[in-house]
Simulated scan of single mutants.
Amino acid sequence: MTAFVSIAAFEAALADLRDLDSDAQADARMRQSELTKPAGSLGRLEDLAIFFAGWQRRARPRIDRARAAIFAGNHGITIHGVSAFPASVTAQMVANFASGGAAINALAGAAGLELTVVALDLDRPTADFTVVPALHEAECLDALNRGAAVIEADLDLIVLGEMGIGNSTAAAALCARSFGGDAAAWVGPGTGVDGHGVARKAAVVDRAIAFHADAPTSAFETLRRVGGRETAAIAGAIVRARQLGVPVLLDGFICGAALAPLAADNPTIAAHCIAGHCSAEPGHRHLLDLLGLEPLLRLDMRLGEGSGAAVAANIIRSALAAHDQMATFAEAQVSASL
């Protein structure tokens, strides 16, 4: 089934967002107060359990089925020398995912995550968005729907990640168009470019923002004008997850940038999302602040491909295990006044 049959359908879904179950959250808070520990002693693990209770709509949430979805796309802006690697590496890494040799294969396995990799027309890079929109309307809508297609109603958690040479430049452009600020504040080394490479990235973003300055600023238009197929797919997955009440665990800067245009249109879209980590990419911390997301981990990771979020999924499993499996004071015959 196609989630978004038209641009209007996508925009309507973003405008009318499903809310969490406050009663389930209240029940989860009550359970936390009855568990054999001092109140608040498990810190953010307690908050995570309550968060999941609200979105899973049950007082004792669990993760029986979780999926990591990695989207791959190629970018026309690589002609400007914005990456330390050629665009051909995107397809090579997708092949590495398929053969089980990438970091995300190992980390998804360790976290008990199904792994789905969606390669988005790698033989057709997006257009150079300094002179034209990156995607036609139909291409952007298709990418949104291909992202939405990985979300199933019985998922207890979706982990989102990406692969795409040049996509940290596109991510910077998405952030700049969504939230403003100089390009220099949003660009970083990405795959490891030097200072000259970072300056080239900033110049590309500046040209893109100037070229599209008079275009509509809706989430859809921002995604198609300065994004990529993989970032549009991530955006589609986020909106579809909200429709189905599936909590979202975001990876690094690129995933956050895919959320940025959505949040610029409707800030409450981030309510069902968790930032798995804060990456070493300089703009990520600022972006998370603007999105109102506090990362679970800070490990100086900047690999992408869902790797940081997959590591964070283990923290979530621990939080829900403690919430579900601990005894209450009454069950353990422990005095609650201690």
Results as ranks from 00 to 15, higher is better:
Ala72Arg: 06
Pro38Ala: 15
Trp55Ala: 03
Phe51Pro: 04
Ile63Tyr: 08
Ala39Trp: 07
Arg67Phe: 15
Ala49Gln: 06
Leu45Glu: 12
Ile63Gln: 03
Thr36Glu: 15
Phe71Leu: 06
Ala59Ser: 11
Thr36Asn: 06
Ala39Tyr: 03
Glu46Gln: 07
Glu34Val: 01
Ile50Gly: 05
Phe51Glu: 00
Ile63Asp: 04
Ile63Phe: 07
Phe71Ala: 00
Phe71Cys: 11
Ala66Gln: 11
Gly40Asn: 10
Asp64Arg: 13
Arg65Asn: 14
Asp64Met: 06
Arg62Glu: 08
Gly54Phe: 01
Ser41Ile: 08
Asp47Cys: 03
Ser41Ala: 15
Arg58Lys: 09
Glu46Thr: 10
Ile50Glu: 15
Ala72Asn: 04
Phe52Val: 00
Arg58Val: 13
Leu48Gly: 03
Gly43Asp: 13
Gly76Asn: 14
Asp64Ser: 10
Ala72Thr: 04
Ala59Arg: 06
Arg65Ile: 11
Arg67Val: 14
Gln32Val: 15
Thr36Leu: 13
Arg44Cys: 02
Leu35Tyr: 03
Ala69His: 15
Ala53Asp: 05
Asn74Ser: 10
Leu42Lys: 01
Ile63Cys: 02
Gly73Pro: 05
Ile70Met: 00
Ala66Cys: 07
Glu34Tyr: 02
Gly73Ser: 15
Glu34Ala: 12
Leu48Ser: 04
Ser33Ala: 12
Pro61Ser: 06
Arg58Asn: 11
Arg67Glu: 13
Pro61Val: 07
Ala72Val: 02
Arg65Thr: 07
Asp47Glu: 15
Ser33Tyr: 00
Asp64Lys: 10
Arg60Ile: 12
Arg44Gly: 02
Ala72Cys: 09
Arg62Met: 05
Ala53Arg: 04
Phe52Cys: 02
Arg57Lys: 12
Pro38Met: 02
Phe51Ala: 01
Ser33Gly: 04
Leu35Glu: 11
Thr36Gly: 10
Ala53Gly: 03
Arg44Ser: 08
Gly40Glu: 07
Phe71Asn: 13
Phe71Ile: 02
Glu46Cys: 06
Ala53Ser: 13
Ala72Ser: 14
Ser41Tyr: 14
Lys37Trp: 08
Arg67Ala: 13
Thr36Ala: 12
Glu34Asn: 07
Arg58Pro: 03
Asp64Val: 07
Arg60Phe: 06
Ala69Cys: 14
Arg57Asp: 00
Phe71Tyr: 06
Ala69Trp: 13
Ala66Leu: 05
Arg65Met: 12
Thr36Gln: 14
Leu35Ala: 04
Leu42Tyr: 15
Arg58Tyr: 05
Trp55Pro: 02
Ile70His: 05
Phe71Ser: 03
Arg67Met: 14
Phe52His: 02
Ala53Ile: 03
Pro61Asn: 11
His75Thr: 05
Ala59Pro: 04
Ala66Trp: 12
Pro61Asp: 07
Gly73Val: 09
Glu46Gly: 10
Trp55Val: 00
Asp47Met: 06
Leu42Thr: 01
Phe51Thr: 05
Ala69Pro: 06
His75Trp: 09
Glu46Val: 08
Ile50Val: 14
Gln56Lys: 13
Trp55His: 11
Gly40Pro: 10
His75Ser: 03
Leu45Val: 14
Arg57Ala: 12
Gly40Met: 10
Gly43Cys: 11
Phe52Gly: 01
Arg67Tyr: 13
Arg62Leu: 03
Gly43His: 15
Gly40Ile: 08
Leu48Thr: 05
Leu45Met: 12
Asn74Thr: 11
Leu35Lys: 09
Ile70Phe: 00
